[in-house]
Nucleic acid binder design. Structure first.
Length: 443
RNA sequence: GUGGUUGUAGCUCAGUAGGUUAGAGCGCCUGAUUGUGGUUCAGGAGGUCGUGGGUUCGAGACCCAUCUUCCACCCCA
């Protein structure tokens, strides 16, 4: 059997972990600056906690975990066992639903509004593609217990500040589910909102004709199609699109509310790289108010983040009237974008600064003692544990990206010094312990 | 879940209309060089050709299944 990682998963080498830590560090810092506290939840939840929260498509992509022991014993008809009969747990699909579960479970203790951030892997049984994996990290910030639109403004600024710190130019696209509901309402297709939004969401990809023909195949009649057509135009500016919607949706209470919400956010969001996009729909069906999506400007990649407001999420777990709004960063895609643009810092080094050579069994204790003392000084030092040819030890240091080599042999031992050699420059010097420490500390 | 694509040495890849012991470059190991590498030279190790069936006198090449890679759809970070 050839060893390999499971489909859609990856190993992370030291270098890749360093990149991930760099991005997560910036995100953590930003989250905390904005007043969010960390939370971690289990890798898997009870199946019923997750099922039905992500739409029909989402249910299909949830990784289910077989019951332990004789997992067939609950199946009424073993030959036709249903997933829920032989599996009772599932890997988390996102961080939002486990968060909602946590909020409801601890409703009594939490001070509202409750703000949390969470950075953990999630799993989806999807087919892999560019920037798309079956195990990937999400980094979320959510707040529950406040209907204030200032939360939306704040989250947009959080996006702005985080991506600025990451040096990744992005565009935040903003829309509101209520606007979409309003459009459907005034067009007489309020009962088929989902079909409409799913098709509309593809406008930038398949064009107006593509959207129309998809709607047609879903059973929309010509009259309805022409009623919906105004939603597929492009606008000069955000204010122009809002002006248009105010007239078009005047007869729809929900639509007008959506327009007012958009214009409030727009008014207070200042210089953020924001664009109103009434074709933005997003699939997750728990969103009820504002929805947003972030795309990198110079990289061909799916979205690097998304989020929105959900009024009923905790309602599913029995806690009514608790509105929430949150955003998500796609860590893996962000790293891919930064790599493509060369925006990752070069000093992500994790390697030791020096490798102490072992020349012979007799020299080893003295050489090791140098490593021991340097480590007590807090220096990252590696000790070569075998007696080996110098060529081999040099090659090892080279391959690991270790800049300095320390050689302590018989003559150095007698002098109480060590040779410090810089691999790239090739220069070498016999130094005392304190001089050597000072040299490495300033590297 | 659907459609296409990929899989040969540690890595990148050759392998012609099915025909003896499957090749190259890089890397790796050993030596020239018993305390100073990166160059050079000489030698060497390493492959159940993704896996399982099938066709054939004969399969790395052809057929089927399955897994995997990448891409697209669906959907999404």
């Amino acid at each position: 059997m050839k060893p390999r990682v499971a489909k859609g998963t990856r190993d992370f080498s030291a270098h890749e972990v360093a990149k991930r830590n760099y991005v997560m560090g910036i995100l953590r810092e930003t989250f905390e600056v904005f007043g969010y506290s960390p939370l971690e939840t289990p890798s898997f939840e009870n199946l019923e906690t997750l099922m039905g929260k992500y739409g029909e498509e989402g249910d299909r992509l949830i990784f289910k975990i077989l019951r332990s022991g004789d997992f067939m014993r609950h199946a009424a008809i073993p030959a036709e066992a249903k997933g829920s009969e032989i599996a009772d747990k599932a890997l988390r699909y996102d961080l939002t639903v486990p968060f909602a579960r946590y909020v409801v479970q601890n409703a009594g203790q939490l001070a509202l509004p409750f703000k949390r951030y969470q950075m953990q892997p999630v799993w989806r049984a999807d087919n892999p593609q560019k920037g798309r994996f079956r195990e990937f990290y999400q980094c979320d910030a959510d707040v529950v217990g406040s209907r204030s639109l200032w939360q939306e403004v704040e989250l947009i600024h959080l996006y702005q500040q985080a991506f600025q710190a990451l040096k990744l130019p992005v565009t935040i696209r903003l829309n509101n589910r209520k606007v979409l509901a309003g459009i459907a309402e005034v067009s007489g297709v309020g009962d088929r909102l989902v079909d409409f939004t799913v098709a509309l969401d593809k406008l930038d990809k398949i064009g107006k004709d593509g959207v129309l023909s998809e709607l047609q195949s879903k059973g929309f009649n010509p009259h309805e199609l022409s009623a919906l057509e105004p939603s597929m135009q492009s606008f000069q500016s955000a204010s122009a699109s809002l002006d248009f919607l105010r007239i078009w949706l005047a007869d729809s209470a929900v639509g007008m509310q959506g327009v007012e919400e958009l214009s409030f956010v727009l008014k207070h969001v200042g210089s953020a790289p924001l664009s109103i996009d009434i074709t933005l729909a997003r699939g997750l069906n728990y969103y009820t108010g504002c929805i947003m999506e972030v795309t990198a400007n110079q990289v061909q990649m799916g979205s690097v983040g998304g989020g929105g407001r959900y009024d009923d999420l905790t309602g599913i777990f029995g806690l009514k009237d608790t509105s929430g709004v949150g955003i998500s960063f796609g860590l893996d895609r962000i790293i891919l974008c930064l790599e493509e643009l060369g925006r990752l810092p070069e000093t992500l080094g994790d390697a030791p600064v020096a490798l102490v050579f072992t020349l012979s069994e007799a020299d080893a204790p003295y050489a090791y003692d140098w490593a021991y003392r340097l480590r007590k000084e807090g220096l990252r030092v590696e000790f070569y544990p075998e007696v080996a040819k110098l060529k081999k030890q040099f090659d090892y240091a080279e391959k690991r990206g270790i800049p300095y080599v320390i050689i302590v042999g018989e003559s150095e031992r007698e002098a109480g010094l060590a040779q410090l050699k810089h691999l790239e420059l090739g220069d070498q010097e016999a130094l005392s312990f304190s001089d050597l420490t000072a040299r490495l500390a300033t590297y």
